[in-house]
């Protein structure tokens, strides 16, 4: 149950692109064609499935306060968590390089389709973000970390695939000239993000984070109205979004 909840939550509710804006750069740069978008998305799933569990192990047994206990009692007070940025990024960069070499050697066909995206991925914020969120959300076990890696990757894949499909179609529409290209992509992404917000209600009850986020917004009683209105809009826009996608 825990696994299923985390899986759907990371894909829809906490979608990498629409909820936290991670991996935006490659999302915008590589989404002109569906085929390249699929390549990048697959590479992201692949790399995240490897690096998140690996960084979880690092975090658990080296970086956290008291994590070095297994070395002996005198190390129990060490807290190396200030090193986590450099450790995580070094792990990711080496893993990407390693994966590139292995894939090139054993699966040349896969390499040809993923190849050019792999170096790009080392600097994709979604990958590092996945590891940092894994740390700050205190994911409890190795298999959950693996699940989190894969499902966040799928969330990114879904996002880049939809935007690529929309961008291929929108080429035939009469967009105002200054908005063409980047501008309209931003606005569509904004609308899609509003649509994805409606998934927030999917896991109500067990979802503590979502509730705290809403209370910060509704800080004064007068704002209650605006929130309700925005929810209605959200649903309306989500419906429009579905039509557009179809």
């Amino acid at each position: 149950m825990e696994h299923i909840e985390l899986f759907f939550k990371s894909i829809f509710v906490d979608n990498m692109v629409f909820a936290t804006f991670l991996g935006m750069c490659s999302y915008l740069a590589v989404s002109k064609k569906v085929s390249t978008a699929v390549g990048l998305g697959a590479a992201v799933i692949f790399v995240m499935a490897i690096t998140v569990p690996l960084n979880w192990l690092l975090d658990q047994y080296i970086l956290q306060e008291g994590a070095l206990k297994w070395l002996g009692e005198e190390y129990a007070t060490y807290d190396l968590s200030f090193l986590s940025f450099i450790m995580f990024i070094a792990t990711i960069a080496t893993m990407v390089q390693l994966v590139e070499i292995i894939v090139e050697k054993f699966a040349p066909a896969l390499y040809n389709s993923l190849g050019i995206f792999l170096p790009l991925i080392a600097v994709n914020c979604a990958i590092l973000g996945g590891s940092l969120f894994m740390q700050s959300r205190e994911i409890a076990s190795l298999d959950l970390a693996f699940n989190y890696g894969i499902s966040s990757g799928i969330g990114f894949f879904l996002a880049i695939l939809t935007i690529a499909a929309i961008r291929e179609k929108i080429r035939y529409s009469n967009v105002p000239a200054p908005l063409r290209g980047l501008g309209i992509t931003f606005i569509i992404t904004g609308l899609m993000a509003i649509g994805f917000m409606s998934f927030g209600g999917m896991l109500t009850g067990g979802d503590v984070e979502e509730i705290t986020e809403e209370t910060t917004i509704v800080s004064t009683p007068t704002e209650n109205n605006t929130i309700e209105v925005s929810k209605e809009e959200t649903i309306k826009l989500a419906n429009n979004e579905k039509e557009i996608i179809e």
């Binding site: 936290t20 931003f186 904004g190 605006t226």
Partner: peptide, 26 residues
């Protein structure tokens, strides 16, 4: 006048940047 709580939510950042791009390119 009422505050627009919607502006605080994530998607509006994207739309704001989109509008900045629009203004700049016009």
């Amino acid at each position: 006048y009422e505050n627009n709580g919607f502006m605080l939510l994530a998607p509006m950042a994207l739309i704001t940047v989109g509008i900045i791009i629009w203004v700049q390119r016009s």
